[in-house]
Structure formats: C-alpha cells, structure tokens
C-alpha cells in the first residue's frame, strides 16, 4: 500500500432508514442520507480538519472510518484494511478521541486506565515508558495520575483521553471535537500537543471541530462537509477564496480625502476621517494596490485584514454548494 493513501475513501455513503409517524398507526419509512457519496484521500503524516455544521455527517464519517458503522455504499480502506470487516484489527492501529465521551475508567485513578491500555494493546514496555513519559510531560499529566477520573476537570479529562488514545502509538488519530468545552489554556495545550505528536511521530490526524482556531493553528488542509457531501477540500487560504471572501486593505492617509478611486481590482467601502477601507478579492496580492495608492495619495500607514474564516464557512454552508460537480477545490491541494 502506498503512503499516499493511508485513508482512502471512495464514494462512501451512509443511508439510515427512519420511520416517521403518519397518522395514528401508520408509519412511513423514509431514507436519510447522512453521508452522500464522499471521496477523499489522506496521505500519511497529514493533519486534516473535517468540518461542517451540526448534522452534516462528520461523526457518521468518523464512525465509518473506525468501523463502528458499516457504509451503505462506496469503498473504504484505512491502511489497506476494510474497517467494518476487521474493526478489531484496525483498532490496534488507530487512536480515537470522542470529545464528548470518555474511554477512561470513571471511578479509578487515571493511571489505572493507562495500565489497561498498555495491556490491551500489548504495548512493549520500553515503547510504553517512552510514550507515556512524553505524553505526561507535554500534557502535564503528572499530578493527575493518582486522581480518580470523575474528579478531573473537563480539560484535564480531555488531556487524559488524548494521551490514552496515543499510548499505543497509532498511525492514525481521529479526534471528534477534541477542544469542545475547554478553556483557552487547555485548548492551547491540546493543540500544542497535537502539533508535537504530528511532527515527532508522523501521526496522521483527522480532526472534526467547530473551533476555527483549531484549524488555523493545526491544519493546512480543510475538508468541509454539508448535507452529507464534501463541499470543499483544499488549503485554508483557498477556503477563503472559495467562499467569495474579500480581503480588506486599511489605509491611513495624511488628511481627510474623498474616497480613493482608480485602483484596479479594489473598491473603497468605507471612509472615516483620514482612514479608508478598500475591499479586494481574497485570491489577489495587496502589493500592487499599495503601490498604486502610494503613487497618488499621501500614505501614512496601512494594514491588510484577512476575510473572517467563520463568515466564509457560513457562506459555504448556506450556499447550495454540495453537488459533486460544484465541489470547490483549491489550486494548492496537496
């Protein structure tokens, strides 16, 4: 198997049959297409964000990738393994963290759960000691090891869960909303840890999240799913362009002047005293604009504002993008 396709998803579908009440006794069966023909590949060592609104099909996809749910159609291979057929074999090679659930032993000290992981995955002693020391160091687990899990804070528990998912050194780590409900410091710790793990061990990471800072700080590649379809797969920069995002050039002039005119590709959207705002397409460079303005106006200072990624994604969700032929793909897709 080539390293190019550690995760290989080809036209995968998941259809649920739901019975709805229709009248007093009658039930109507109808189909819900939770995942509707998704195709993507993730090469070894990549860190990918998998985002979408609630109910878009993110968790359903992750469950199919781990073998918990059987796809209704399409082809799925993780490290060459068909997850639904060989769930237990695959489980030895992946790590999974569901942000809202825990794998830890609730009433027992944290270290008991790690001891169980060591024995369950048959991690060799030397390997275990090394990984454990590294996880404990990066995630600050030392003082928590003797504390029963039920007494941990959410942030501490999450760090504990992430360590538990990595002690057997999985090739792939799935994180389903790993920073949900965490405070700023815990989020930062978790992100830093994930970056380290990815860099040091080359662990492939697939991350679902609603926190855009997670994406900006961790992932160069983003996949956006909506209504069970992949509506975007590419770089973070391309995502801004795909959402018709605009960058904004803010210039401070020497004095109050009428709106700047005659700069190709930009339009002045706001004037406030000597400060003016110019909008231009996200795909373009600001340099020629700055040059053109500086040539004709008394420029004192300037700054460029990137389009708000949150707005961009909201636009993607709202648009009727989603038909496969409309799947946006950025030019810099790896």
């Amino acid at each position: 198997m080539t390293a190019e396709r550690l995760i290989d998803v080809d036209g995968v579908e998941k259809v649920f049959t739901v019975r709805r009440k229709a009248g007093r006794l009658r039930r109507v069966r109808h189909e819900v297409r939770a995942v509707d023909g998704i195709t993507f590949q993730v090469p070894r060592g990549e860190m990918v964000a998998y985002i979408g609104p609630n109910g878009a099909g993110k968790s359903t996809t992750v469950k199919m990738l781990t073998g918990i749910l059987v796809p209704s159609g399409g082809r799925l291979r993780i490290a060459g393994i068909d997850p639904a057929r060989e769930r237990t074999r695959l489980a030895r090679r992946i790590g999974v963290v569901f942000g809202q659930r825990t794998t830890l032993w609730w009433d027992l000290p944290l270290k008991d759960s790690y001891e169980l992981v060591r024995r369950m995955y048959r991690v060799p002693d030397a390997v275990y000691r090394a990984h454990f020391a590294r996880c404990a160091e990066l995630l600050d687990l030392g003082p928590l090891l003797d504390v029963p899990v039920r007494q941990l804070s959410l942030g501490q528990r999450m760090r504990g869960d992430i360590a538990a998912a990595l002690l057997h050194d999985p090739e792939i780590l799935y994180l389903d909303e790993p920073t949900i409900g965490l405070d700023v410091i815990s989020k930062a710790k978790v992100r830093e840890f994930l970056r380290e793990v990815n860099a040091e061990r080359g662990t492939t990471v697939l991350l679902t999240t609603h926190d855009l800072t997670d994406i900006e700080q961790l992932c160069r590649r983003v996949m956006v799913i909506d209504h069970g379809r992949l509506v975007y797969d590419g770089g973070l920069d391309g995502l801004r362009a795909a959402g018709d995002g605009e960058r904004t050039l803010v210039v401070d002039l020497e004095r109050e002047l009428p709106p700047i005119e005659g700069v190709p590709g930009a339009r002045t959207v706001k004037v406030e005293g000597p400060r003016q705002w110019l909008a231009f397409p996200a795909g373009r460079s600001a340099a020629p604009l700055v040059a053109a303005i500086a040539e004709r106006y008394p420029l004192v200072d300037l700054s460029v504002r990137e389009p708000d990624i949150e707005e961009v994604i909201a636009k993607l969700y709202a648009g009727d993008g989603g038909r496969p032929d409309r799947t946006a793909t950025a030019a810099d897709t790896p």
Partner: peptide, 13 residues
C-alpha cells in the same frame, strides 16, 4: 447515549 462507540473502538470483544 452512544458511549458504546468508545467501547467499539477498542481492540476488544
């Protein structure tokens, strides 16, 4: 609650 998903992700019967 669906927490069973966590159990099913283990290499265990």
């Amino acid at each position: 609650s669906g927490d069973i998903a966590v159990d099913l992700c283990r290499p265990a019967d």
